[in-house]
Design a protein around this nucleic acid. Structure first.
Lengths: 183, 183
DNA sequence: GTACTATGAGACATAGATGTCTCAAATAAG
DNA sequence: CTTATTTGAGACATCTATGTCTCATAGTAC
Protein backbone atom coordinates (compact mmCIF):
# COMPACT_ATOMS: atom_id res chain seq x y z
CA UNK A 1 0.00 0.00 0.00
CA UNK A 2 2.90 2.32 -0.62
CA UNK A 3 1.99 5.80 -1.69
CA UNK A 4 4.91 7.78 -2.99
CA UNK A 5 5.89 11.15 -1.68
CA UNK A 6 5.06 12.58 -5.09
CA UNK A 7 1.56 11.16 -4.99
CA UNK A 8 1.11 12.65 -1.55
CA UNK A 9 2.26 16.04 -2.76
CA UNK A 10 -0.05 15.94 -5.76
CA UNK A 11 -3.09 14.97 -3.71
CA UNK A 12 -2.25 17.45 -0.99
CA UNK A 13 -2.06 20.27 -3.51
CA UNK A 14 -5.41 19.31 -4.95
CA UNK A 15 -7.07 19.14 -1.57
CA UNK A 16 -5.51 22.31 -0.20
CA UNK A 17 -6.71 24.21 -3.24
CA UNK A 18 -10.24 23.11 -2.45
CA UNK A 19 -9.91 23.61 1.32
CA UNK A 20 -6.97 25.89 2.14
CA UNK A 21 -7.51 25.48 5.87
CA UNK A 22 -7.51 21.68 5.80
CA UNK A 23 -5.98 19.91 8.76
CA UNK A 24 -3.31 17.23 8.48
CA UNK A 25 -5.98 14.64 9.32
CA UNK A 26 -8.13 15.90 6.49
CA UNK A 27 -5.26 16.01 4.03
CA UNK A 28 -4.25 12.47 4.99
CA UNK A 29 -7.77 11.26 4.32
CA UNK A 30 -7.81 13.06 0.98
CA UNK A 31 -4.51 11.45 0.03
CA UNK A 32 -5.75 8.03 1.16
CA UNK A 33 -3.19 7.41 3.87
CA UNK A 34 -3.21 7.62 7.62
CA UNK A 35 -2.25 10.77 9.45
CA UNK A 36 0.69 8.93 11.02
CA UNK A 37 2.02 8.14 7.57
CA UNK A 38 1.59 11.70 6.42
CA UNK A 39 3.59 12.79 9.46
CA UNK A 40 6.27 10.31 8.53
CA UNK A 41 6.71 12.11 5.25
CA UNK A 42 6.39 15.63 6.58
CA UNK A 43 7.38 16.53 10.09
CA UNK A 44 4.64 19.10 10.50
CA UNK A 45 1.90 20.94 8.64
CA UNK A 46 4.30 23.85 8.26
CA UNK A 47 6.82 21.47 6.73
CA UNK A 48 4.27 20.20 4.22
CA UNK A 49 3.14 23.66 3.24
CA UNK A 50 6.72 24.86 2.94
CA UNK A 51 7.59 21.96 0.69
CA UNK A 52 4.57 22.77 -1.46
CA UNK A 53 5.62 26.41 -1.52
CA UNK A 54 9.09 25.56 -2.79
CA UNK A 55 7.45 23.28 -5.34
CA UNK A 56 5.32 26.16 -6.55
CA UNK A 57 8.35 28.41 -6.85
CA UNK A 58 10.29 25.73 -8.72
CA UNK A 59 7.39 25.33 -11.15
CA UNK A 60 7.15 29.05 -11.67
CA UNK A 61 10.85 29.38 -12.23
CA UNK A 62 10.81 26.45 -14.64
CA UNK A 63 8.08 28.15 -16.66
CA UNK A 64 10.18 31.31 -16.82
CA UNK A 65 13.25 29.42 -17.91
CA UNK A 66 11.45 27.35 -20.52
CA UNK A 67 9.97 30.55 -21.91
CA UNK A 68 13.49 31.96 -22.05
CA UNK A 69 12.47 35.26 -20.51
CA UNK A 70 15.92 36.23 -19.28
CA UNK A 71 17.52 35.64 -22.66
CA UNK A 72 14.72 37.40 -24.50
CA UNK A 73 14.95 40.41 -22.20
CA UNK A 74 18.71 40.53 -22.65
CA UNK A 75 18.36 40.35 -26.42
CA UNK A 76 15.79 43.13 -26.63
CA UNK A 77 14.57 41.54 -29.83
CA UNK A 78 10.87 42.19 -30.31
CA UNK A 79 10.02 38.91 -31.99
CA UNK A 80 11.92 37.00 -29.39
CA UNK A 81 10.23 38.88 -26.56
CA UNK A 82 6.84 38.20 -28.09
CA UNK A 83 7.54 34.51 -28.30
CA UNK A 84 8.82 34.43 -24.72
CA UNK A 85 5.80 36.40 -23.49
CA UNK A 86 3.40 33.93 -25.04
CA UNK A 87 5.35 30.99 -23.69
CA UNK A 88 5.46 32.55 -20.25
CA UNK A 89 1.74 33.29 -20.11
CA UNK A 90 0.84 29.86 -21.47
CA UNK A 91 3.13 28.22 -18.95
CA UNK A 92 1.66 30.19 -16.07
CA UNK A 93 -1.87 29.26 -17.07
CA UNK A 94 -0.84 25.63 -17.03
CA UNK A 95 0.42 25.77 -13.45
CA UNK A 96 -1.77 28.42 -11.83
CA UNK A 97 -4.44 26.04 -10.53
CA UNK A 98 -1.85 24.46 -8.27
CA UNK A 99 -0.76 27.26 -6.07
CA UNK A 100 -3.75 29.32 -5.04
CA UNK A 101 -3.90 27.99 -1.50
CA UNK A 102 -0.47 29.42 -0.73
CA UNK A 103 -1.96 32.91 -0.85
CA UNK A 104 -3.61 32.42 2.50
CA UNK A 105 -0.77 30.70 4.31
CA UNK A 106 0.57 32.85 7.12
CA UNK A 107 3.57 30.81 8.06
CA UNK A 108 5.80 30.59 5.01
CA UNK A 109 9.44 30.97 5.91
CA UNK A 110 11.21 34.21 5.16
CA UNK A 111 13.69 32.65 2.75
CA UNK A 112 10.85 31.25 0.68
CA UNK A 113 9.15 34.63 0.53
CA UNK A 114 12.44 36.23 -0.43
CA UNK A 115 12.88 33.72 -3.20
CA UNK A 116 9.37 34.41 -4.40
CA UNK A 117 10.13 38.10 -4.62
CA UNK A 118 13.26 37.37 -6.61
CA UNK A 119 11.40 35.24 -9.11
CA UNK A 120 8.71 37.85 -9.41
CA UNK A 121 11.29 40.58 -9.94
CA UNK A 122 12.62 38.55 -12.83
CA UNK A 123 9.22 38.53 -14.39
CA UNK A 124 8.79 42.24 -13.78
CA UNK A 125 12.11 42.91 -15.52
CA UNK A 126 10.92 40.84 -18.43
CA UNK A 127 7.64 42.73 -18.62
CA UNK A 128 9.57 45.98 -18.58
CA UNK A 129 11.60 44.74 -21.54
CA UNK A 130 8.32 43.96 -23.30
CA UNK A 131 7.21 47.52 -22.63
CA UNK A 132 10.41 48.91 -24.11
CA UNK A 133 9.91 46.72 -27.15
CA UNK A 134 6.33 47.98 -27.50
CA UNK A 135 4.67 44.66 -26.83
CA UNK A 136 3.06 45.95 -23.68
CA UNK A 137 1.89 49.48 -23.15
CA UNK A 138 4.47 51.61 -21.43
CA UNK A 139 1.86 53.87 -19.87
CA UNK A 140 0.92 51.19 -17.32
CA UNK A 141 3.18 50.81 -14.29
CA UNK A 142 5.08 47.58 -14.84
CA UNK A 143 4.22 46.22 -11.41
CA UNK A 144 0.57 46.84 -12.13
CA UNK A 145 0.96 44.76 -15.29
CA UNK A 146 2.49 41.98 -13.22
CA UNK A 147 -0.43 42.18 -10.80
CA UNK A 148 -2.88 42.06 -13.66
CA UNK A 149 -1.28 38.81 -14.84
CA UNK A 150 -1.66 37.46 -11.35
CA UNK A 151 -5.27 38.64 -11.07
CA UNK A 152 -6.25 37.08 -14.37
CA UNK A 153 -4.59 33.84 -13.29
CA UNK A 154 -6.84 33.94 -10.25
CA UNK A 155 -9.76 34.42 -12.64
CA UNK A 156 -8.60 31.42 -14.65
CA UNK A 157 -8.40 29.25 -11.57
CA UNK A 158 -11.83 30.32 -10.43
CA UNK A 159 -13.45 29.88 -13.83
CA UNK A 160 -12.06 26.41 -14.23
CA UNK A 161 -13.09 25.45 -10.71
CA UNK A 162 -16.63 26.55 -11.40
CA UNK A 163 -16.77 25.03 -14.84
CA UNK A 164 -17.56 28.37 -16.44
CA UNK A 165 -15.11 27.83 -19.27
CA UNK A 166 -13.70 24.81 -20.99
CA UNK A 167 -10.17 23.93 -20.02
CA UNK A 168 -9.04 24.07 -23.60
CA UNK A 169 -10.33 27.64 -24.02
CA UNK A 170 -8.56 28.93 -20.97
CA UNK A 171 -5.16 29.87 -22.42
CA UNK A 172 -6.75 31.77 -25.30
CA UNK A 173 -9.18 33.66 -23.09
CA UNK A 174 -6.48 34.54 -20.62
CA UNK A 175 -4.01 35.84 -23.20
CA UNK A 176 -6.69 37.60 -25.18
CA UNK A 177 -8.11 39.36 -22.18
CA UNK A 178 -4.69 40.26 -20.82
CA UNK A 179 -3.39 41.65 -24.10
CA UNK A 180 -6.49 43.09 -25.71
CA UNK A 181 -8.98 43.61 -22.92
CA UNK A 182 -12.70 43.10 -23.08
CA UNK A 183 -13.93 45.97 -25.20
CA UNK B 1 -14.58 53.63 26.54
CA UNK B 2 -17.52 52.68 24.40
CA UNK B 3 -16.65 51.35 20.97
CA UNK B 4 -19.57 51.18 18.62
CA UNK B 5 -20.56 48.09 16.75
CA UNK B 6 -19.76 49.90 13.53
CA UNK B 7 -16.23 50.68 14.70
CA UNK B 8 -15.78 47.06 15.62
CA UNK B 9 -16.95 45.96 12.20
CA UNK B 10 -14.64 48.40 10.43
CA UNK B 11 -11.60 47.37 12.43
CA UNK B 12 -12.44 43.68 12.12
CA UNK B 13 -12.64 43.97 8.35
CA UNK B 14 -9.30 45.70 8.22
CA UNK B 15 -7.62 43.12 10.43
CA UNK B 16 -9.18 40.10 8.75
CA UNK B 17 -8.00 41.36 5.40
CA UNK B 18 -4.46 41.39 6.74
CA UNK B 19 -4.78 38.10 8.65
CA UNK B 20 -7.74 36.06 7.35
CA UNK B 21 -7.18 33.34 9.96
CA UNK B 22 -7.17 35.74 12.92
CA UNK B 23 -8.72 34.44 16.13
CA UNK B 24 -11.35 36.32 18.08
CA UNK B 25 -8.68 37.25 20.63
CA UNK B 26 -6.54 38.72 17.91
CA UNK B 27 -9.42 40.60 16.34
CA UNK B 28 -10.40 41.98 19.73
CA UNK B 29 -6.87 43.26 20.26
CA UNK B 30 -6.87 44.81 16.80
CA UNK B 31 -10.16 46.55 17.53
CA UNK B 32 -8.91 47.72 20.91
CA UNK B 33 -11.47 45.94 23.05
CA UNK B 34 -11.43 42.84 25.18
CA UNK B 35 -12.40 39.49 23.81
CA UNK B 36 -15.32 39.37 26.22
CA UNK B 37 -16.65 42.60 24.78
CA UNK B 38 -16.26 41.33 21.25
CA UNK B 39 -18.24 38.26 22.25
CA UNK B 40 -20.92 40.53 23.69
CA UNK B 41 -21.37 42.01 20.24
CA UNK B 42 -21.06 38.81 18.25
CA UNK B 43 -22.07 35.47 19.68
CA UNK B 44 -19.33 33.57 17.89
CA UNK B 45 -16.59 33.92 15.30
CA UNK B 46 -18.98 32.46 12.73
CA UNK B 47 -21.52 35.12 13.69
CA UNK B 48 -18.96 37.90 13.19
CA UNK B 49 -17.83 36.55 9.83
CA UNK B 50 -21.40 36.05 8.70
CA UNK B 51 -22.27 39.63 9.62
CA UNK B 52 -19.25 40.83 7.66
CA UNK B 53 -20.28 38.64 4.75
CA UNK B 54 -23.76 40.15 4.64
CA UNK B 55 -22.10 43.57 4.90
CA UNK B 56 -19.98 42.78 1.86
CA UNK B 57 -23.01 41.66 -0.12
CA UNK B 58 -24.94 44.76 0.87
CA UNK B 59 -22.03 46.95 -0.30
CA UNK B 60 -21.82 45.09 -3.57
CA UNK B 61 -25.53 45.34 -4.14
CA UNK B 62 -25.49 49.03 -3.29
CA UNK B 63 -22.77 49.59 -5.89
CA UNK B 64 -24.88 47.78 -8.48
CA UNK B 65 -27.94 49.82 -7.62
CA UNK B 66 -26.16 53.15 -7.59
CA UNK B 67 -24.70 52.30 -10.98
CA UNK B 68 -28.22 51.53 -12.15
CA UNK B 69 -27.23 48.34 -13.85
CA UNK B 70 -30.66 46.76 -13.86
CA UNK B 71 -32.30 49.80 -15.44
CA UNK B 72 -29.50 50.20 -17.97
CA UNK B 73 -29.72 46.54 -18.97
CA UNK B 74 -33.48 46.82 -19.33
CA UNK B 75 -33.17 49.94 -21.47
CA UNK B 76 -30.61 48.39 -23.81
CA UNK B 77 -29.40 51.92 -24.51
CA UNK B 78 -25.71 51.91 -25.31
CA UNK B 79 -24.85 55.23 -23.73
CA UNK B 80 -26.74 54.32 -20.62
CA UNK B 81 -25.05 50.95 -20.43
CA UNK B 82 -21.67 52.58 -20.82
CA UNK B 83 -22.36 54.98 -18.02
CA UNK B 84 -23.60 52.19 -15.78
CA UNK B 85 -20.59 50.01 -16.61
CA UNK B 86 -18.18 52.75 -15.60
CA UNK B 87 -20.11 53.46 -12.43
CA UNK B 88 -20.19 49.77 -11.58
CA UNK B 89 -16.48 49.22 -12.11
CA UNK B 90 -15.57 52.38 -10.21
CA UNK B 91 -17.83 51.35 -7.37
CA UNK B 92 -16.36 47.91 -7.21
CA UNK B 93 -12.84 49.26 -7.10
CA UNK B 94 -13.85 51.43 -4.17
CA UNK B 95 -15.08 48.49 -2.08
CA UNK B 96 -12.90 45.62 -3.21
CA UNK B 97 -10.23 46.02 -0.52
CA UNK B 98 -12.79 45.21 2.12
CA UNK B 99 -13.89 41.75 1.26
CA UNK B 100 -10.93 39.66 0.26
CA UNK B 101 -10.79 37.66 3.47
CA UNK B 102 -14.22 36.19 2.80
CA UNK B 103 -12.72 34.16 -0.03
CA UNK B 104 -11.09 31.82 2.41
CA UNK B 105 -13.94 31.43 4.86
CA UNK B 106 -15.27 27.92 4.84
CA UNK B 107 -18.27 28.38 7.04
CA UNK B 108 -20.48 30.94 5.38
CA UNK B 109 -24.13 29.97 5.63
CA UNK B 110 -25.90 28.61 2.60
CA UNK B 111 -28.36 31.48 2.37
CA UNK B 112 -25.52 33.97 2.22
CA UNK B 113 -23.82 32.03 -0.54
CA UNK B 114 -27.11 31.80 -2.39
CA UNK B 115 -27.56 35.54 -2.10
CA UNK B 116 -24.03 36.07 -3.38
CA UNK B 117 -24.80 34.00 -6.45
CA UNK B 118 -27.95 36.02 -7.08
CA UNK B 119 -26.08 39.31 -6.91
CA UNK B 120 -23.40 37.95 -9.17
CA UNK B 121 -25.99 36.72 -11.64
CA UNK B 122 -27.35 40.23 -11.79
CA UNK B 123 -23.94 41.50 -12.75
CA UNK B 124 -23.52 38.76 -15.33
CA UNK B 125 -26.86 39.73 -16.91
CA UNK B 126 -25.70 43.30 -17.05
CA UNK B 127 -22.41 42.30 -18.68
CA UNK B 128 -24.36 40.28 -21.21
CA UNK B 129 -26.40 43.37 -22.03
CA UNK B 130 -23.13 45.25 -22.50
CA UNK B 131 -22.04 42.56 -24.92
CA UNK B 132 -25.25 42.89 -26.91
CA UNK B 133 -24.76 46.64 -27.04
CA UNK B 134 -21.19 46.16 -28.27
CA UNK B 135 -19.53 47.67 -25.23
CA UNK B 136 -17.90 44.38 -24.36
CA UNK B 137 -16.74 41.82 -26.89
CA UNK B 138 -19.34 39.14 -27.49
CA UNK B 139 -16.73 36.53 -28.34
CA UNK B 140 -15.74 36.15 -24.69
CA UNK B 141 -17.96 33.97 -22.49
CA UNK B 142 -19.85 36.36 -20.25
CA UNK B 143 -18.98 34.46 -17.11
CA UNK B 144 -15.32 34.69 -18.03
CA UNK B 145 -15.73 38.44 -18.31
CA UNK B 146 -17.22 38.48 -14.84
CA UNK B 147 -14.29 36.45 -13.56
CA UNK B 148 -11.87 38.81 -15.21
CA UNK B 149 -13.47 41.70 -13.32
CA UNK B 150 -13.04 39.74 -10.14
CA UNK B 151 -9.43 38.82 -10.92
CA UNK B 152 -8.49 42.39 -11.70
CA UNK B 153 -10.12 43.51 -8.47
CA UNK B 154 -7.84 41.03 -6.72
CA UNK B 155 -4.94 42.64 -8.57
CA UNK B 156 -6.13 46.06 -7.39
CA UNK B 157 -6.28 44.94 -3.79
CA UNK B 158 -2.84 43.40 -3.99
CA UNK B 159 -1.25 46.38 -5.73
CA UNK B 160 -2.63 48.79 -3.18
CA UNK B 161 -1.57 46.57 -0.29
CA UNK B 162 1.96 46.47 -1.62
CA UNK B 163 2.09 50.12 -2.49
CA UNK B 164 2.85 49.37 -6.12
CA UNK B 165 0.40 51.93 -7.40
CA UNK B 166 -1.02 55.16 -6.05
CA UNK B 167 -4.53 54.91 -4.71
CA UNK B 168 -5.69 57.66 -7.01
CA UNK B 169 -4.41 55.82 -10.11
CA UNK B 170 -6.16 52.61 -9.26
CA UNK B 171 -9.58 53.19 -10.86
CA UNK B 172 -8.03 54.32 -14.12
CA UNK B 173 -5.59 51.42 -14.31
CA UNK B 174 -8.27 48.92 -13.48
CA UNK B 175 -10.76 50.17 -16.07
CA UNK B 176 -8.11 50.68 -18.69
CA UNK B 177 -6.67 47.22 -18.29
CA UNK B 178 -10.08 45.59 -18.15
CA UNK B 179 -11.42 47.35 -21.23
CA UNK B 180 -8.36 47.77 -23.40
CA UNK B 181 -5.83 45.24 -22.14
CA UNK B 182 -2.11 45.69 -21.88
CA UNK B 183 -0.90 45.62 -25.44
C1' DG C 1 9.34 -19.55 3.92
C1' DT C 2 11.84 -15.63 7.03
C1' DA C 3 13.30 -11.04 7.96
C1' DC C 4 12.69 -6.38 7.29
C1' DT C 5 10.10 -2.28 6.40
C1' DA C 6 6.05 0.44 6.01
C1' DT C 7 1.53 1.30 7.50
C1' DG C 8 -2.75 2.21 10.14
C1' DA C 9 -5.09 2.66 14.30
C1' DG C 10 -5.18 4.48 18.37
C1' DA C 11 -3.45 6.54 22.59
C1' DC C 12 -1.38 10.42 24.68
C1' DA C 13 0.01 15.14 25.89
C1' DT C 14 -0.05 19.79 24.57
C1' DA C 15 -1.42 24.15 22.67
C1' DG C 16 -4.57 27.22 20.95
C1' DA C 17 -9.12 28.73 20.06
C1' DT C 18 -13.66 28.92 21.47
C1' DG C 19 -17.64 30.18 24.16
C1' DT C 20 -19.37 31.15 28.82
C1' DC C 21 -19.29 33.28 33.05
C1' DT C 22 -18.04 36.11 37.34
C1' DC C 23 -16.61 40.13 39.55
C1' DA C 24 -14.25 44.40 40.31
C1' DA C 25 -13.39 48.57 38.05
C1' DA C 26 -14.46 52.01 34.77
C1' DT C 27 -17.69 54.72 32.47
C1' DA C 28 -22.05 56.86 31.57
C1' DA C 29 -26.35 58.86 32.95
C1' DG C 30 -29.19 61.58 35.81
C1' DC D 1 -22.94 62.99 44.06
C1' DT D 2 -25.45 58.12 43.37
C1' DT D 3 -27.01 54.59 40.46
C1' DA D 4 -26.93 51.92 36.41
C1' DT D 5 -24.50 50.04 32.73
C1' DT D 6 -20.54 48.55 30.35
C1' DT D 7 -16.07 46.80 30.23
C1' DG D 8 -11.79 44.11 31.00
C1' DA D 9 -9.42 40.53 33.13
C1' DG D 10 -9.31 36.19 34.15
C1' DA D 11 -11.05 31.59 35.15
C1' DC D 12 -13.16 27.60 33.37
C1' DA D 13 -14.62 23.79 30.37
C1' DT D 14 -14.62 22.01 25.87
C1' DC D 15 -13.06 21.02 21.43
C1' DT D 16 -9.93 20.58 17.65
C1' DA D 17 -5.58 20.20 15.70
C1' DT D 18 -1.04 19.03 16.36
C1' DG D 19 2.96 16.24 17.01
C1' DT D 20 4.75 11.95 19.06
C1' DC D 21 4.76 7.30 19.94
C1' DT D 22 3.59 2.17 20.32
C1' DC D 23 2.19 -2.02 18.48
C1' DA D 24 -0.03 -5.27 15.53
C1' DT D 25 -0.68 -5.99 10.84
C1' DA D 26 0.28 -5.69 6.05
C1' DG D 27 3.42 -5.47 2.43
C1' DT D 28 7.98 -6.19 0.34
C1' DA D 29 12.40 -8.31 -0.54
C1' DC D 30 15.26 -12.19 -0.64
Amino acid sequence: MAVSREQIITAAIRHLNAVPTASMAEIATAVGISRATLHRHFTSRDDLVTVLGWRALADWERVQQEAGIAEAAASGDRARLQEALHALLHGEVAICHEHGFLLTENTLPADLLRRSDEIEDREVEFLAACQRAGLIRADLPVRWVSSAVFGLLVAVTESVRRGDVAQRDVPRLFLDTFLKGTS
